[in-house]
Simulated scan of single mutants.
Amino acid sequence: MTEHPAASHAAAPPGTEPGTSSSSRGALVIAALILLLAVYLTVGLITMDVPDSAQPPGPRFYPLILTVGAYLLAALLALGALRGGSPSARTSAGARGAPTGDTRALLLAIGAFLAFIVILVPLGWLLSATLLFWAIAASIGSTRKLFDLGVSLVVSAAVQVAFSLGLGLNLPPGILGGIF
């Protein structure tokens, strides 16, 4: 027996079109927000006052990288959402109720970022960024705590060196200010 084409759409939740899911719409909303951020960054780049004495790469270099990355991310998110989202999002789209692992990871990452904001000035960039990167790795499920701590320290030190030597900017030294 053949099923009538309209019958397959009868199971769709009310208010949704066939072939779309709330995760796809959510991804489109996030893509739109990232696109707005990219436009805001573009306006900032265009209106930025750059002194004639600025040395390459200059103050527009890093914001330009972020702007291009934001445009690419927005495009990729929108394309993925229009194609139907990720397979895991499609299989769990109907599940409601208890927070998923993704919600837990998001909340842990937000908490880590808020803690980073609070401890940045007293502890300094090197220590607070190390703790932030380590907490983010833990929030997404890494089980190699000591390895993650080492990688976090190396990455935060590399960022500090890039800002100090590459841009001539000093990140907050915190309690390590007199040592380095």
Score class of each variant (00 low, 15 high):
G19M: 08
A162Y: 06
I175Q: 05
A12R: 13
V151A: 04
T91R: 14
S156Y: 03
V68Y: 06
G168N: 02
I140R: 10
L36C: 13
L131F: 11
G101D: 07
R83Y: 08
A158W: 03
L120V: 05
P13F: 07
L127K: 02
L82M: 13
P13K: 12
P173Q: 11
S24L: 00
F61S: 04
F147W: 14
L127Q: 03
D102I: 12
E17W: 13
R104V: 15
G150Q: 04
S164G: 07
L169N: 07
D52P: 01
A158Q: 05
L45I: 03
L149R: 01
L66W: 14
A137W: 00
G15I: 03
G85H: 07
T67E: 14
P122Y: 07
G44C: 05
I136S: 03
G101K: 04
S23Y: 11
V39Y: 08
T100F: 08
W125A: 02
P173T: 10
T67K: 05
P51F: 02
F133I: 09
L171M: 02
R90T: 11
E17A: 15
L132G: 06
A98W: 10
I34R: 06
K145S: 11
I136D: 04
S24K: 09
S88A: 15
S128W: 05
I46P: 00
L37Y: 15
K145R: 15
S128A: 15
T2M: 12
L79G: 13
A10H: 11
A162D: 00
A6M: 12
P99T: 09
L35E: 10
L108A: 13
A11I: 14
L79Y: 15
T100A: 14
Y40T: 13
D148A: 00
S164P: 00
A75L: 12
V43F: 14
A78K: 09
T103G: 07
I119D: 07
A162M: 10
F113Y: 10
P99C: 07
S142T: 05
G69Y: 01
A74P: 08
P51S: 11
P173K: 14
S21H: 11
T143R: 15
V50I: 12
P14N: 13
A158R: 04
R104P: 01
L153C: 09
A70R: 04
A162H: 01
V68M: 06
I117E: 02
S53N: 10
G85P: 05
L149M: 12
A138N: 00
W134K: 03
G80H: 09
R83V: 08
G178I: 08
T47H: 09
L132Q: 04
P172T: 08
S92R: 13
L107T: 06
A95Q: 14
L120G: 05
I136V: 15
P13N: 09
M48T: 11
R144T: 00
